[in-house]
Design a protein around this nucleic acid. Structure first.
Lengths: 335, 335
DNA sequence: TTGAAAGCGCTAACAA
DNA sequence: TTGTTAGCGCTTTCAA
């Protein structure tokens, strides 16, 4: 199993090992003949460069750390797919990590990645406190936050325009004739969610609607939680809304389930609008109308920004905001 | 941004740098006092070990390559989550790669991973030909195949008992009173799928049922494909089956959609059973009864096997077959 | 165009 | 218990 090294090749080809290195790295200070000959020998001997050794002298591993809260989450797994693709196109590989929304774990992973000498880190933060907790590391390693709007924080991030997305949603429902729109799942502990709620409020104000909220005090985004909250909501005596705008698609999925059980038909009895456009939302029988976060674009911009930061050793930062779009399916109706 | 090294620490602490190395690696041939002092200095200087340098001398990166067809696939993303978890517990990190079911890509990734000196590779093969194509590499790097049964091939794999899973499914439907069970999505180009079809046939034989097939000639597992095939199937004049056993959950999802459109109610008019238990299947409104592949267990066994292979430099192989289980939801009815 | 040699940051064998 | 030194496999000056 012992790997053949540059030295073995050199010996076999009858040249010095620096010549082999030159042949492999595509250097021009080498004759065509020797290059061809060496490359031939490499092939015969099944030689593969040792990237670890190369990394050490080059001071670059061409490895990126991707820290997610969990790949087992439809939004993140799709994002991870595109990130890997974009990274691969740029000659990078991804080390995947899951923080499980645990900030200590997240910090540990940061240290681990720094130890592994990754060239940069792509982070879907565990929570709103992540930036503060990770600050000490941010000067040591190029990092970009993904999916979470950090507002005026002096660190690079790429995020969807959550405020605008919420406005688009409200306007869509308004144009369908809805005047009583409940915002479901508002949370205080995430800038992203604050912005969505603010966008909702702003749109209501502009259109002369009265904002109504159903708050998510547990700050969970699980289906289960949406279900529990919705059950409670639907069992109240009178319903004063004709549409629900859910803060996330997973919440919306929970609402669907609760509605089903309570005999409420969507969209006949109640219109439902989500946010994120996770894969599940497009499934048959679900067909959730929602505001999409363009994951491929998010990945593309994230990599551009990060690679730029790595190459130029930029000490500045950039905030990149992506426009969301409405995906119309079958969970909202005209009234 | 320049990282502090073991030498910087040594200088600051007034010791030789091998002493620092000893303090960090938890060696016992060092006095308690110096160790404490050195550790203190490390903390003050914000020292982090350079894993790359360490890897080079240790000849182990504690990195594992995970080559999937796509993380953007509910089964694989869940598997990836558990694999990362299990790897992390054992002190390994994961380099994630996607082959997109392309064998050339897969081969390239193998070379890349070998170059990166990963300690081992976890592979969800791109196709049935993967083993043959990758054979030259398998002697160079400990590898384990996941999710695909390689039958008598002399290489380690961990897979669910697909034959048994299909039997369980047929028996379940039989006990519900079904006598006309269609097997949907049979494919020839995957051992896993052959085994499922064989399990179905064997169970039919044993129970005195006549096997019926609807073949997937395009060997796609997408929802879309299930949908197209089902549309075609449902538009035929008479239906001679009361239940469909779908080769995969994604196929089942497509069937559901087609049924919906044709006004066929599941499970009232037609029972539907899946295979895999992807996350989507448990969603509200979907509630697909299915045969589960236990992903966490798969990940656990895969890592045990691989780590064992790495540590013992085993040249042998092991075939580990996991028992599947029925997950009863709401898509099959008693008749 | 090629070779010799230094050095990346670390571990480990050997000496003191 | 500690220091000295070689070496992991590679890239990159500097000399020839």
């Amino acid at each position: 199993m012992k790997n053949v090294t540059i030295k073995d090749v050199a010996k076999a080809a009858g040249v010095s090992y620096s010549t082999v290195s030159r042949a492999l790295s595509g250097s021009r200070e080498i004759s065509h003949d020797t290059r061809e000959r060496i490359l031939q020998v490499c092939k015969e001997m099944n030689y593969t460069v040792n990237t670890v050794a190369r990394s050490m002298v080059m001071k670059s591993t061409r490895l990126l750390g991707l820290i997610l809260t969990s790949v087992n989450n439809p939004f993140m797994s799709e994002l991870a797919y595109y990130i890997d693709q974009e990274a691969h196109m740029r000659g990078y590989n991804i080390i995947l990590c899951n923080s499980s929304r645990d900030m200590d774990q997240e910090r540990e992973l940061f240290e681990l990645m720094i130890g592994r000498q990754v060239d940069g880190i792509l982070l879907c933060p565990a929570g709103p406190g992540s930036y503060e907790r990770l600050r000490p590391y941010l000067s040591r390693i190029p990092t970009i936050f993904i999916g979470e709007n950090l507002r005026e924080v002096p660190e690079s991030y790429v995020s969807v325009d959550n405020f605008r997305g919420a406005q688009i949603g409200v306007e869509y429902l308004y144009n369908l004739g809805h005047r009583d729109i409940l915002y479901f799942g508002r949370r205080r502990n995430s800038t992203t969610h604050q912005l969505r709620a603010e966008g909702y409020a702003a749109a209501c104000e502009r259109l002369g609607l009265t904002p109504m909220y159903c708050n998510n005090t547990f700050s969970s985004t699980s289906i289960r939680y949406g279900y529990d909250l919705a059950k409670q909501l639907f069992s109240q005596q009178e319903r004063r809304f004709s549409a629900i705008f859910a803060a996330t698609d997973t919440n919306a999925l929970g609402i669907m389930q609760a509605a089903e059980e309570m005999g409420l038909q969507i969209p006949q009895d109640l219109s439902l609008l989500g946010f994120d456009n996770i894969r599940d939302s497009g499934l048959p029988r679900i067909e959730l109308t929602t505001i999409e976060q363009p994951k491929q674009l998010l990945a593309n911009v994230a990599l551009d920004t990060l690679v730029d930061k790595i190459q130029n050793e930029l000490s500045g930062y950039s905030h990149r905001i992506i426009s969301p779009a409405l995906i119309e399916r079958n969970s909202c109706r005209k009234i």
